[in-house]
């Protein structure tokens, strides 16, 4: 059965690209300060265009001015509502990621190490994988109702696949020579798994973790928007229905900010756990 492992994807894992530690480092021959200034200028231009467009369309419902969005952002931040929603979403995210890691990583090791386990389980995985998390929402609404469980279920489901596939790929991709070297040194099987396979697979698993996060973060918005009375996804839709556009925009900015911060944190974790793997990561 042909299987696609997203590990060779040169793509954006999504928020923040791992291959680019910093903008400045990537654009070789470009001093960091100057690069920062360019970034600032880009944002300034973007905001100016936004402002001009808002003034020109003169339709605060459809396109509020940057200033009104900023005001909305400030008031939502001050009264703590935004923080509450962000924390709600983040908690769900953390729980889902935790469950996904506990389920998918051991399963991935099993499937990577045992041909037989793989032969039995893999077809099931391939059957489920094309069904996106989003498509589970209506059925999950029946089963779990509107609430906390639905987003957690959807996100866990979404996060499991990249983690599982990358774990399998990581386990299988362990350098044969390292395995041979360990065997010639008389290291027992269990220790080989612990000291050779696990470190060997870790960089790939970390990439899987970031892919899983990207998918989950994208799915939580849909899940909360449709089936939850709280969280960031709920909030944007709520204010959309109230026609309070500045707050809609403010929440969209918050979603971007939380997503971005989480990815930066994951990148830091990746660097801490697998400092030897820099440069070999996906991207």
């Amino acid at each position: 059965m042909q299987r696609s492992i997203e590990i060779d994807s040169p793509l954006p894992v999504s928020p923040g690209n791992p291959a680019r530690p910093t903008l400045a480092a990537k654009v070789a021959g470009y001093p960091a300060v100057l690069s920062g200034l360019v970034t600032l200028r880009s944002f300034a231009v973007f905001i100016a265009i936004w402002w001009a467009a808002a003034a020109w369309t003169h339709s605060p419902l459809q396109l509020p001015t940057p200033l009104s969005v900023l005001t909305a952002l400030k008031s939502l931040a001050i009264d703590g509502e935004m923080l509450d929603n962000a924390l709600t979403s983040f908690t769900r995210l953390a729980i889902s990621m935790g469950i996904a890691v506990v389920v998918a990583v051991p399963l991935g090791f099993l499937m990577g190490l045992s041909e037989r386990a793989n032969a039995y389980i893999d077809p099931m995985v391939e059957v489920l994988r094309p069904i996106s998390g989003i498509a589970w929402i209506p059925l999950a609404l029946f089963i779990f109702g509107v609430g906390d469980v639905l987003p957690v279920f959807i996100m866990t489901y979404v996060a499991c696949f990249p983690l599982l596939l990358n774990t399998i790929a990581g386990v299988r991709g362990t350098d044969r020579r390292l395995l041979a070297a360990a065997r010639t040194m008389g290291v027992p099987q269990s220790r080989i798994v612990r000291h050779v396979v696990m470190p060997g697979a870790l960089p790939t698993i970390m990439v899987g973790l970031r892919l899983a996060f990207a998918g989950a973060w994208s799915a939580i918005i849909a899940a909360e928007l449709i089936g939850s009375p709280s969280g960031l996804g709920f909030a944007i839709e709520w204010y959309r229905q109230l026609l309070m556009s500045p707050k809609v925009f403010a929440y969209i900015i918050a979603i971007g900010a939380v997503g971005y911060s989480c990815d930066v944190a994951l990148q830091a974790l990746q660097r801490t756990l697998t400092p030897w793997a820099r440069g070999t990561e996906l991207a």
């Binding site: 994208s218 928007l225 944007i236 839709e237 204010y239 969209i252 979603i255 900010a257 997503g259 990815d263």
Partner: peptide, 11 residues
């Protein structure tokens, strides 16, 4: 990029 497609649906 970190803004999911579904987040821009309300807009």
């Amino acid at each position: 990029r970190p803004i999911a497609p579904m987040a821009v649906l309300p807009i």
